[in-house]
């Protein structure tokens, strides 16, 4: 369970996030949607502590994350996994070394145990026979899979994904989306995903928060999104004229 209360973040005096409050539940894929530049990445990075918010509270269970001491933060971080927009795989390391990286630091497992876990994670994301490849030898979709495998290497309670299907074709996108959803349900992870892809919203969005110019202006499920009367949201969801006409038809 993650609870965000009245979060503010600014860069050089410019407000990027304004008064954001929202809850995320385990076993659910919660989506943050919004146009490019609306503040999704900043929100996600503030939640995980890569940015320090000016004001507000971020609760992980009963721990107030942004007030924890460095050491306690570090403990909590071991329960987080994150998939970055560009995958952010370590390009000095092979696929399996990437996945074993957090294990090297935080477990006392033998090499066999680490390899076993790495292979388990790779199988889980349906990526086999790529163990010895370097990230630049992989396609975008494969990189995302490795990114997910690395994020779940230490059985996280919290999974964060920044635009998991940016740069992927629609088919691969859906495959990655479903993979994240399955893993979320299978391990009861609290998953937060940034996206501007409506396919993802309809496919995996258990709960959706819509960000407009740094404010959360709408929150609901993917069933409700089509019937909302929030103007900014409708402009975002129903971009084309055809979509607008369809919406008019639906609401008749």
């Amino acid at each position: 369970m993650i609870r965000i209360k009245n979060l503010y973040k600014e860069f050089d005096g410019k407000d990027v996030l304004k008064d954001i409050s929202i809850d995320y539940k385990p076993g659910e894929c919660s989506l943050i949607i919004g146009a490019s530049g609306s503040g999704k990445t900043v929100l996600l990075k503030s939640i995980v502590g890569l940015h320090t918010p000016e004001k507000g509270e971020i609760w992980y269970g009963d721990k107030l994350f942004n007030k924890l001491r460095e050491k306690e933060k570090k403990e909590l971080r071991k329960e987080m996994g994150m998939l970055f927009q560009g995958s952010a795989l370590f390009d000095f390391a092979t696929v399996e070394e990437n996945i074993m990286f957090p294990m090297d630091f935080f477990t006392d497992w033998s090499l066999e145990q680490k390899l076993e876990r790495a292979n388990f994670c790779l199988r889980r994301v349906n990526l086999e026979n790529a163990n010895k490849k370097y990230p630049n030898e992989l396609s975008g979709g494969m990189q995302k899979r490795v990114g997910i495998a690395r994020a779940i290497a230490l059985n996280p309670k919290y999974l964060f994904c920044d635009e998991p299907n940016s740069g992927l074709d629609p088919t691969t996108s859906i495959v990655i989306d479903r993979l994240i959803k399955e893993i979320t349900q299978e391990y009861n992870i609290t998953t937060v995903i940034n996206t501007h892809d409506m396919n993802s919203v309809m496919e995996i969005g258990d709960k959706i928060g819509f960000i407009y110019q740094g404010r959360k202006v709408w929150e609901g499920s993917n069933k409700e999104i089509l019937h909302s009367d929030c103007k900014e949201l409708n402009d975002f969801v129903f971009t084309t004229n055809m979509a607008k006409q369809l919406k008019a038809l639906m609401n008749r």
Partner: peptide, 16 residues
């Protein structure tokens, strides 16, 4: 280049 490709962020989020 590790910074701009978020590899440093990836380490930090692991607690490294």
């Amino acid at each position: 280049s590790m910074r701009i490709t978020e590899q440093i962020d990836a380490m930090e989020i692991m607690g490294v």
